[in-house]
Design a protein around this nucleic acid. Structure first.
Length: 207
DNA sequence: AGCGCGTTTACACGCTCCGT
DNA sequence: ACGGAGCGTGTAAACGCGCT
């Protein structure tokens, strides 16, 4: 299985041998420019340390395994939630209440409603383990695009509000100095539980 | 380094629901 | 019927990332 984020991808490989099977996760970076490295650069004649674009040569070679290992870890973490031991109501009840963050009120989530669960499931895509969740990466698959929206601004606004709502509930965390969000452990477990409850409901309906 | 434009924020407005 | 709370949406403006 392979998840693409533009030129970069994360790949899951299952290897078989006589003892059993081994799962290997692999991250491939073809376009390093999408990542950052902390290094000294010259700005207006002065040496300053900042998060600069990752270069293609060997200069930033040390940073590459760090990025790949972090991506692999996030991906494995997401996989591990497929067998959550806790009961669903313990996970879903807290986020099904409105919450307050920085003096602002945020509505309750409805993780098992068709509207919210569809949007939550978008976040489970393995490609977001590579470098996080961006507004623009959500737009193509967004289930509720605004009508008469030539620049896509209204849809982007809807997605922003959705991401902010999830951040307020602790399902996402914003990566500082970027327009990227990352799924938290709480977010992983809420999505997994929501999916499990929804599938159980579907089975009941079919039965 | 500068600039374009995507993203975020703040505000106003309308709709729905609920209690009185 | 009325008012308030809660929520979602559109829009303009500010912000700042990222492309050249």
């Amino acid at each position: 299985m392979k998840h693409f984020l533009q030129e970069n991808w994360i790949k899951m490989i299952k290897m078989y041998n006589k003892q059993g099977s081994v799962l290997r996760i692999e991250t491939t970076i073809n376009n390093p420019r999408r990542f950052k490295v902390s290094r000294r650069v010259t700005r207006q004649g002065k040496q300053v340390k900042l998060w600069a674009v990752l270069r293609k040569g060997i200069a930033d070679f040390r940073r590459r395994p760090e990025i790949c290992v972090a991506a692999n870890r996030r991906y494995l973490q997401a996989l591990s939630f497929a067998v959550l031991p806790v009961t669903a109501h313990r996970t879903l009840d807290p986020v099904s209440q409105p919450c307050l963050r920085k003096g602002r009120r945020y509505r309750a989530l409805r993780p098992i409603s068709p509207e919210d669960s569809q949007k939550l499931l978008l976040l489970q895509d393995g490609r977001f383990a590579i470098e996080g969740i961006r507004n623009r990466d959500q737009q193509a698959d967004w289930p509720d695009p605004a009508s008469n929206d030539p620049g896509g601004k209204r849809t982007a606004g809807r997605i922003t509000r959705w991401l902010r709502l999830l951040t307020a509930h602790g399902l996402l965390s914003k990566i500082p100095h970027t327009q990227c969000y990352r799924l938290t452990l709480k977010g992983q477990s809420v999505i997994t539980c929501a999916l499990r409850v929804r599938n159980a409901d579907m089975k009941k309906l079919v039965a």
